[in-house]
Amino acid sequence: MTTRKVFFAAALAVIAHAASAQGDPKRGEKVFEECRACHAIEKGSNGVGPSLHGVIGRRAAELDDFRYSPAFKRANITWTRQNLDAFLADPQKLVPANRMPYAGMPEAKDRADVIEYMQRILK
């Protein structure tokens, strides 16, 4: 692999990464509808799923007032944008045997938009 090619591939990766960073939060809010049935955005209000307030950058299964399944407790991952993206793509792949009754978002665009929205709203 000549350095040029290597340099070129790395650049591509950065752009791709950047592109996903500029998800559209407006559309993201609409996509987030999929999650509202079980997740609240307000702090402390847990329902079928834990509150997603401040989830970005938090470790998995960190809230002590929600009963996480063992799969999340064992997962020891941090909800970085990348992990969130992988998780939303196929939840059972990233955290096998987790209890979330949601099959995931196959469209990368949906994931980018919803993560952008979550980044803004879930401070």
Binding site: E33, E34, A37, P101
Partner: peptide
Amino acid sequence: RAYTNPDGVRFGACQ
């Protein structure tokens, strides 16, 4: 698909 009914109740999508 995900849905909010006229009383404001939120539904998840059937799996």
